[in-house]
Amino acid sequence: MKFDFDVIAKNLPYLLSGVKFTIALACLVIILGTFLGVIFGILKLSKNRLIRYPVSFIVELTRDTPIIMQMFFIFFGLPALGIRLNTFPSAALAMSFFAAGNTAEIVRGAIDSLPTGQFDAAKSLGMNYLQMMIYVIIPQALRRMLPPMMGLFTTLIKDTSLAAIIGAFELTRAGQEIIERTFRSLEIYLVVAAIYFIICYPLSYYTRKVEKGRVTGF
């Protein structure tokens, strides 16, 4: 069987039109997810069990179940409650919750990694809880969150491919449509993989650099 370069060349523009949606979805999800996730993360620290337990449950629910299951549930299952979302919003919502759950965990990890002495010092200077968090704890936690968040963003870009399963249009779906017409699975999927690689590799390379740069001890 001959490797058909022609079909790649002819369909590349269509694939690239899918890339736009891939990037848009990933960016939307990371923004929503980070916002939600930071809120979840801080709520999880609450001493009040009425707040902590439900938030913990939501975080575990989104972190410990497959993303496509969450997508299926939202896309196929929510209509039972009268909530009918289209493919793109369903995928975005499911992935945002997934991102939020993971972000909350990253927040927890970052705050946990801070030495208790920082909390002690802030308290002994008379700062109340809010002052301590805003001026001492959160600035340091943010720095520690950066590498894992960048890793999460890379993962999310790859996971946008799952949206194709419920029919949302992005790079993978574009590839599937081309294959339905041309039957050249190998060539097209290889190109699709290459495009994801071109997007993700620089990100993971840069993430590693950021990780190594943080040697100054905070």
Binding site: T172, L186, A193, F197
Partner: peptide
């Protein structure tokens, strides 16, 4: 690590039969 698992599955299941 930099390509989606879904695409990897597709290449192995749908693409390899091509060769």
């Amino acid at each position: 690590r930099n390509t989606p698992l879904l695409i990897q599955i597709f290449i192995i299941f749908f693409g390899l039969p091509g060769i």
